[in-house]
Design a binder for these strands. Sequence first.
RNA 1: GAAAGGGUAGCUCAGUCGGUAGAGCAGCGGCCUUUUAAGCCGUAGGUCGUGGGUUCGAGCCCCACCCCUUUCACCA
Length: 514
Amino acid sequence: MINNNITYMSEQEQSPSELLALRKEKLNQLYELKINPFPSSFDVTAKTSVLKSEDFAIPENPEAGERVSIAGRVMTRRVMGKAAFFNLQDANGTIQVYIRRDDVGTDNYNTVFKKLVDLGDIVGVKGFIFKTQTGEVTLHAEHFELLSKAIRPIPIAKEVEEDGKKVVYDAFSDKELRYRMRYVDLIVNPHIRETFRKRSQMVQQMRMFMIDQGYLEVETPILQPIYGGASARPFVTHHNTLDMKLYLRVANELYLKRLIVGGYDGVFEFSKDFRNEGMSRFHNPEFTQVELYVAYKDYNWMMDFVERMLEHVALSLHGSTEVPVGKHVIDFKRPWPRIPMLEAIKNETGIDLEGLRLDDLISAAKDLGIHVDKTMGKGKIIDEIFGVHVEHKLIQPTFITDYPVEMSPLAKKHRNKEGLVERFEAICNGKEIANAFSELNDPVDQRQRFEEQVKLREKGDDEAMALDEDFLRALEYGMPPTAGLGIGIDRLAMIMTNQESIRDVLFFPHMRPE
RNA sequence: GAAAGGGUAGCUCAGUCGGUAGAGCAGCGGCCUUUUAAGCCGUAGGUCGUGGGUUCGAGCCCCACCCCUUUCACCA
């Protein structure tokens, strides 16, 4: 016991790093000087990005120019005795600040700025804009004030221009640390801030696009007594007062269709969904989808809609329908090719699966190197062939249409193709980005489809859907013909921001505890 | 779940054959009033992911475990 205690205490002494302790000591010194290291507010009148833009005119005699005040984080510092330069970073950029002892006061400069302010501290400055000898737009500070003391050191990267290119040295680049401490990542890696700004813009543009059509943005339950709307394993939780099992939603489809039954002619929801499955660069346990349901429309209309909306999104984010993604340039200009699934398979493999009996289909699949087991029906086999031989080759936006009915228990049967449903997926960069169908609104057919799902579940398919009696009751009151759509927001954001991993478009991707 | 790679100072990384733990930046003490990876002089900083083992001696070799990355499988 005694030994353990001694070990424990010595760990305690070592654990706050020297740098942390030193900065806490600086806090104490500030208090002794009657300087509040965490004041309540500061009057900001300008942004660094505006000050550095062409629009901001610097007069002949800069000292006669207007006074501006800016606030932000001290990112670099070059002290030359009685004067110094530092770079101040605000939300949109950085600007160099020139500060002299004779302008801001001896104590403020020598003691506060030089001794007690560190890189990473948040400060406010007021002064006028001029250009240095080397032509850099700089704020000449006449007032300097500490706004928030940072007691942890930030990882400082050095940036330099070499042959006209920006080269960054010692960037904060450890992915684990970046994801675990996204706040630090955002401070020191400005391009990360930009990626998330783009994601936000993307969502905003989609929202406005749908609102402009007159569709209603709604919210539906995340905690559901019966989960449905997608083939997936759910997270389970428990309600104490009701003493009942609840599921975190895997989709919101069945609730949105209840609202179409209720009489709205268009509803959509940006929905956090939860699926208890593997993690990868394309999968996070929680992810975002937007689902949209429009009455009196079918999947053909929905293809037009998706084209129009995503073309609009690309244009508003990039000023062009062309979006660079990895080695490719993806062009969202409409119209996109529309290819029935069996035709797409025929195009890629030369094999026509149309009208094949199950045993012929199985041998065709085996010829194509597909692993087939006895539980797989025709639909599953076709889907597998498509996944292995076609999907990853579709780089430019493409609609794949008319899926096997077995894979789509919520989609309406095709009006003239036996065994298929009126469904499409939009494929882009080799991945599904949208999934849509003419919604099944026949309550008798829907009940049969649910019952088939229940059989699959009994056979051991733990991703099969459960029978939702209340949803069936809603359909029994009559749902108009309806087109429904789901778009994976994270996947789309990866494309629109040219990121290879879903973790780079989620602020806080799921990580094991530290 | 499987395979490969990785975990060394606050950050980015070296570390040879197993022989006292290294650099740059950040930090600390100085000098320097238009610098910009500022510069110059000096200085401090480590549970080498964790726990075992082999050895006179382990950052390095062996075993187990933890965490991350990438790829694959399931899935959106």
